[in-house]
Simulated assay, not measured.
Amino acid sequence: MNIKKWRPYVYYGSLAVFLILFTWGFFEVVDALQENEVAAFDATIIKEVQSWVNEGRTARMVFMTELASVIFLTIATGLIALFLVIRRRYGWALFFVLVNGLGGVFNDFLKELFKRQRPDILPLIEQGGYSFPSGHSMGSFIFYGALSFMLFRLLKGKWKKMIAAVLAGCMILLVGLTRIYLGVHYPSDVIAGFSIGAAWLFFWIMLFHFSEYRINRRLSR
């Protein structure tokens, strides 16, 4: 069996499976929310996480949560895209802008669709808008996930790729934790944000690969 021949099929098949699984996970949370099956779960997690509250930790959590705010992600996306354009990585720049920019629009659409009010259990910061799915959680998964994917493709060296992936994963999880700690999201909001953010990211990764394939095929003619 030629392993190299089958490797692309395994890779693209895995992307499709992840896209389906995370989409299914999101709709499972939606179903549980509509059936009022998440209240006990949310209350238990919130009670545990907010038992950690102290002044010093709150300051660190506020700092961490800002690393997934709309302002930060917008500026960071713009700077990274500019850097990519300067390096003549136009396809990567377009991918990074579209996956993040349209991801934000998609999150706004979902919030308006579900209109879930934010929790009122010990909110430590003020946060407007609706709660479901968590925009910070969805945005962090898309931004740091896309950044990790890009670095994984562009960096040389297995350890550099692994470090980029681990750091991205840690950032995503920490941002989700801050939203519960700060009292502005239910845990189910965060899980839904991660799920739909992951589905959105895998969809765009597949679209990026398809576009890359079409361009390379056209150039090879």
Rank of each mutant, 00 (worst) to 15 (best):
I196H: 09
F132T: 04
W24E: 14
W6K: 08
K156M: 07
I121W: 06
L82I: 15
G169S: 06
D108H: 11
M1S: 12
S131M: 03
S134E: 06
E212G: 08
E55A: 14
F194W: 15
V190D: 03
L151C: 03
P123F: 03
L73V: 15
M206R: 05
A76Y: 05
H185V: 04
K160E: 10
F203Q: 07
S188Y: 13
L113F: 14
F141E: 00
T23E: 02
E112M: 10
G169R: 07
V105E: 09
L151S: 04
G145S: 05
G128M: 08
I163H: 04
L84F: 12
E37L: 10
G91T: 05
I75C: 07
R88A: 12
G101V: 02
S188V: 11
V29P: 00
S188A: 14
L94I: 15
G183H: 01
M171P: 05
C170K: 11
R221C: 01
S211H: 11
L73K: 13
P119G: 05
D108F: 08
A81E: 00
K158M: 13
N216E: 13
K160M: 12
I125F: 01
E112H: 15
K156V: 06
I71P: 06
A192K: 12
T58I: 03
Y90W: 13
V62T: 09
L167T: 00
L182E: 00
L147D: 06
Y9L: 12
V99D: 02
R153D: 11
G103M: 09
F26I: 05
R221L: 06
Y12G: 10
I125W: 05
I46S: 08
I142T: 07
A165D: 02
F132Y: 10
V99F: 01
R179G: 03
V10I: 12
S148D: 04
M206W: 09
A43N: 13
E112P: 05
I3D: 11
I86P: 12
F149H: 01
S195R: 04
A43T: 14
S211V: 10
F203R: 06
K5S: 08
G145T: 04
V184K: 02
K160N: 15
A16V: 12
S69A: 09
R221N: 10
G176D: 01
R217M: 08
L79Q: 08
C170A: 15
G25L: 13
I121C: 06
V190M: 04
I172V: 08
E37N: 11
L122E: 12
I180W: 00
K115M: 12
V62L: 03
P133V: 12
T58M: 14
G169E: 04
T178P: 07
A164M: 05
V17G: 07
R221G: 04
S188C: 11
F141V: 10
G129D: 09
L113N: 10
G101Y: 08
M61K: 06
I163E: 04
F22Q: 02
E66D: 14
V190F: 03
E48S: 10
Q127C: 00
F27N: 12
R60A: 14
K115Y: 07
Y11L: 13
L124H: 11
L219S: 11
W52Y: 14
F26Q: 07
I125S: 05
I125D: 00
